[in-house]
Design a protein around this nucleic acid. Structure first.
Length: 445
DNA sequence: TTTTGAGTTGTTCGA
DNA sequence: GTCGAACAACTCAAA
């Protein structure tokens, strides 16, 4: 009996529980649906990466992947009917949109006598399964991570032997994907599982040993850069965790991804609004926001990061925090403004990780955060980019300044050359403003 | 039920 | 230059 495997955030065939389940039933039709509701909402970088990843998966299974365009609620039942499939297998989704869509598709499938069967999720531990002793979801990362490690996960499985079934691909859908790749604003990484695994092996060989320290140095570029592969499911975190010390730093970073997926499942509204509202006033200065977005704030490490984002579709994690702190604490903007910009430009843009990392910076998130966590862009630059390499790479106007002096052009005798702006705000002043707003909140009636 | 200890990633100030 | 304290009060998790 032919079954359908509807691919979404799981664009691989290795270690794929839903594919195992499908293959166990008989020949499999692999399907990818371009959902206009998502496609139109995603920026060109993420669209290009998704498209490239889908095409890579298609090539990997001998061009047997069937592509369609349209509302999955209509397309998936239609395809199931075309091949007489009684089951459509998927990897489970717990995001607000994904879960609602799947409920809709499941209902539509029932109408034509088919069933939607979910196996696994894009996480090592399925969101919703790590619970306190009382059975409640965790609200704090550290206890969550302890329970998450105890919960554990299965070892990765090899790719099953699959007999792929073909049916008509929508050529317009294929064209849409190819156009998205061709019009990518950035140079894309090599897509697909094999490239992801190659990246992983390189990281293990070169960077894992020094990861604790070096991951914080944007000039070294010693992070794994695996987030794009995890985002589309070309790799599953199980594959990475299999050979790792469970308490190691890298495993902990993966755990953050899982924690935030869990939080989003518990509180879907936290995607775009405060998990814990602060009730402080926010500013909305269009010129300042534009300076932030384009990397012209006059704070070198902030501008370097914002420019890297636009140029590469990616930003180093340390710099994501610095730029996030600058937007929320120095420009006093509400975090969703920054989250929207990041999601529009990041190749690895992931709703749960993005929104909740922003909330961490803003002080509205799971971390009962010290209100005084305000990053000083100059000292952060000097501390984490001591030689100034990262700034000089992205802010050529400051290339004439030596070493760490790039972080304070206003102090250096060689000062400004060319067209680099003076700081648009004074950090010390804005820090005070932010603190005062928090204080006002505490004493308010 | 009550209590206790703890909470990713920071900065500044003063000794 | 280095170091520890202070920076609010709160929420959570577990004993």
């Amino acid at each position: 009996m032919t079954t359908v495997l509807w691919f979404r955030r799981d664009l691989r065939i290795e270690d794929h529980p839903a594919l195992m389940a499908a293959a166990a039933e008989g020949p499999v039709l692999g399907l990818f649906v371009i959902d206009p509701a998502l496609w139109s909402r995603v920026g060109p970088v993420r669209r290009a990466w998704l498209a490239a990843s889908v095409l890579a998966l298609g090539a990997q299974i001998g061009d047997a992947l069937v592509l369609r365009y349209g509302d999955p609620g209509l397309v998936v039942p239609a395809v199931a009917a075309e091949v007489g499939a009684r089951t459509v297998h998927v990897t489970g989704e717990t995001t607000p949109y994904g879960a609602a869509r799947d409920r809709r598709v499941a209902a539509a499938l029932l109408e034509v006598g088919s069933a939607l069967v979910a196996t696994g999720t894009p996480y090592a531990v399925d969101p919703g399964t790590v619970r306190t002793l009382k059975g409640d979801p965790y609200q704090v990362f550290t206890p969550f991570s302890r329970a998450w490690r105890e919960q554990g996960w299965s070892d990765p499985e090899p790719a099953p032997t699959v007999t792929w079934v073909r049916t008509a691909t929508d050529l317009d859908a294929r064209m849409l994907l190819e156009d998205a790749v061709a019009s990518s604003p950035i140079r894309l990484p090599v897509p697909g599982t094999e490239a992801g695994l190659e990246r992983w092996r390189a990281f293990l060989a070169e960077d894992l040993a020094g990861y604790d320290v070096d991951r914080d140095l944007p000039g070294k570029d010693a992070t794994s850069r695996l987030s794009p592969y995890l985002k589309v499911g070309a790799l599953h975190p199980r594959q990475l965790l299999a050979g790792l010390e469970r308490t190691g730093r890298f495993a902990t970073e993966l755990c953050w991804r899982e924690f935030y997926a869990d939080v989003l499942l518990q509180r879907p509204s936290s995607a775009w609004s405060d998990l814990r509202p602060l009730a402080i006033p926010y500013d909305d200065d269009a010129d300042a926001l534009e300076a932030w977005r384009t990397g012209r704030t006059g704070y070198p490490i902030v501008d370097a990061g914002m420019r890297q984002l636009l140029a590469e579709g990616w930003m180093h994690n340390r710099v994501r925090m610095i730029t996030g702190s600058f937007l929320t604490k120095d420009l006093h903007a509400w975090w969703p403004i920054g989250a929207r910009h990041f999601l529009d430009h990041l190749i690895d843009g992931d709703l749960a990780s993005n929104s909740h990392s922003w909330q961490w910076v803003a002080g509205t998130g799971t971390d009962a955060s010290p209100y005084f966590r305000i990053f000083n862009p100059t000292s952060q630059g000097r501390k984490f980019d001591p030689d100034g390499d990262y700034v000089r790479r992205w802010v050529p106007e400051l290339a004439h300044l030596p070493g760490g002096a790039v972080h304070e052009p206003w102090k250096h005798p060689l000062g400004y050359e060319g067209d680099y702006p003076q700081p648009i705000v004074e950090h010390d002043v804005e820090r005070r403003v932010a603190l005062d707003r928090y204080a006002a909140r505490v004493t308010a009636p």
